[in-house]
Design a binder for these strands. Structure first.
Lengths: 212, 212
DNA sequence: AAGTGTGAAAAGTTTCACAGCG
DNA sequence: CGCTGTGAAACTTTTCACACTT
């Protein structure tokens, strides 16, 4: 196995990809502190992982370190960005500007990390607008044209559970390739589409198992 | 290994515990549709997993099925609830009622799944109250007393990154055992405390790797 | 000496396949 | 017969330990 899948993309374990994002943040923090070279031990500590795991993760997509010295912060940042497909700004849309949806729009956590939420869609756009959302909120039926026009690839899905699958189908049909899904529903989509479920109640439930 | 860890709790793989929550929801859906018995194949389909995995997951904490027939919906619901520690309502507090925090308070996704957010805490409680939050919002320094008084075990942490670790320390010291952490920071806590990180920007970043 | 890169071992998880029960 | 419960196999991910480079 040469770490290559059929699409020509390097085959990195899913969990390692999550960690790459964490490394990216840690590197940015180090860069802000004028650090220009970092050892796997130090970076691992900042990121909260084992140093051996960090080295293995980085080795999945290249060799960037200097033995005896460590990794150049700036180069490594660039390489991880490139691997994650974050060299250029990704436009994102949000669908379903209800309670949670408009909350996410006002919360600027995505922008801070370099994602631009360029528009939102809702059956009742006025309601969201009146909630103090600044990003343009359009009527639901304009969704498809907008996605095609702007070639948007990423969507945040916050519609009520009962509409989630139907809306997901529309998104995929219009060209969306990745969905961040906040509905507590297992979406069924083609294998070429990536779904990321964020299920807040489920996370709390998971915690409640571990408290004795 | 008899599936028992030192605390006397059955040793269920972490990933299986997440799935138990999904099964619980699926069962509730079936129950609402008057289904009283369900086969592993059917329940697995609803939950979006393989039937063999479902059977293995359930087997970790008991034997509830009848061969040739399937699982009794109601009993299985009770057993999973019990395993997850969800037989009785868990009180939860939220710390940091800023942008995201007050958004989560207005969003009632937790309540719907049976968690009661009984109070929130913030350095500037008035700001959150004026944002239309109905749950009582108290001043930050009342945190410890409240946790002890009500023996709260679960907290949702939404303070800015720079205060996250300090606040987590306070929570743990006051008796919190599980933290749902929305700050993009790896919290360092004792091994008896469970942390669940929900990092929205990280999830988006993960998606961006998979879109070609 | 310090620290990377990496095979190989260990641990964790999923899937298979089938014996056995109702 | 239909479907559960489960060992064993397959696969994935993590950790170890050390050869090797600067």
């Amino acid at each position: 196995m040469d770490h290559q899948d059929k699409s020509g993309k390097i085959d990195i374990p899913k969990k390692a990809i999550y960690r790459l994002s964490i490394y990216l943040r840690s590197l940015q923090k180090l860069h802000a502190n004028q650090v220009s070279t970092v050892s796997s031990t130090t970076l691992a500590k900042v990121a909260g992982v084992k140093s051996s795991q960090l080295r293995k993760d980085l080795a999945y997509f290249g060799q960037f370190g200097t033995r005896g010295l460590g990794y150049p912060v700036e180069l490594l940042t660039t390489m991880i960005r490139e691997t994650l497909g974050r060299e250029r700004l990704q436009p994102v849309i949000l669908v379903g500007a209800g309670n949670l949806g408009s909350a996410l729009l006002r919360y600027h956590g995505f922008e801070k990390e370099g994602f631009e939420v360029i528009a939102a869609f809702d059956a009742k756009p006025d309601a969201a607008i009146s909630r103090g959302v600044r990003i343009p909120v359009f009527a639901d039926h304009l969704l498809e044209d907008f996605i095609k026009e702007k070639s948007v690839k990423l969507a945040i899905l916050c519609v009520p559970s009962e509409h989630a699958q139907l809306t997901a189908n529309r998104l995929v049909h219009a060209g969306i390739q990745g969905i961040l899904n906040f509905s507590p529903v297992m979406l069924e989509v083609g294998s070429d589409i990536t779904i990321n479920n964020v299920d807040l109640a489920l996370e709390l439930e998971h915690l409640s198992y571990f408290i004795r």
